[in-house]
Amino acid sequence: MELNVYLAGEIHSNWREELKDKAKSLQLPVHFFGPMENHDRSDFIGEEILGKQPNAIFKDEAASNINNLRTELLLKKSDLVIALFGEKYKQWNTAMDASAAINQNKPLILIRPEELHHPLKELSSKANVTVETVNQAIKVLSYIFEEK
Rank of each mutant, 00 (worst) to 15 (best):
E47I: 08
I49G: 07
I57T: 13
N93C: 06
T133Y: 07
E114T: 13
K148R: 15
K139T: 09
E72A: 15
R16W: 11
A95E: 02
I82D: 01
P54Q: 07
D60Y: 12
W15G: 01
D43K: 11
L80A: 02
V5N: 07
T71M: 04
L110I: 00
P29V: 10
S142R: 13
K106L: 05
K148V: 06
I57C: 00
K76Q: 14
K106A: 01
L74C: 08
K88E: 11
K24V: 12
S124E: 06
G9T: 07
L73C: 10
A100P: 05
P107D: 04
A100G: 03
S13I: 08
L73K: 14
L75Y: 09
S42G: 14
S42D: 08
L116G: 01
E10Q: 13
L69K: 14
E18L: 15
M96D: 10
P54F: 01
L50N: 12
R112C: 06
R41V: 12
A62V: 08
I111M: 06
I82T: 05
V140E: 05
E61N: 13
P54V: 11
D79T: 10
G9Q: 03
Y6P: 03
F58A: 14
L110M: 11
N135W: 11
M1R: 12
Q53P: 02
N105H: 14
A127K: 02
N14A: 14
E48G: 09
T94D: 03
A137E: 00
F33Y: 13
P113Q: 04
G86E: 10
N128M: 06
N128C: 00
T130I: 01
A100K: 12
D40G: 10
V131M: 02
P119A: 02
A8H: 00
G51M: 01
D40N: 12
E114H: 11
I11H: 10
P35R: 13
E115M: 06
S25K: 14
N103A: 08
S42I: 01
L74A: 05
G34T: 00
K126H: 07
I45P: 04
G51T: 10
S125H: 01
K106M: 02
D79Y: 02
K126T: 03
L110H: 04
L108R: 01
E132G: 08
L74Q: 14
V134K: 09
A95G: 13
D40T: 15
F58V: 07
L108G: 04
S64H: 10
Q53T: 05
N105Y: 06
G46V: 05
N65I: 05
K24E: 12
L84Y: 00
V131S: 08
N55A: 09
F145M: 03
K24Q: 11
M36P: 09
N38Y: 11
N135T: 04
K77S: 09
L80Q: 05
A23Y: 04
L7W: 02
I82F: 02
K20R: 15
I138D: 09
L3I: 02
K52A: 03
I11K: 13
T130E: 06
G86A: 07
A63Y: 10
Q136I: 00
L141R: 05
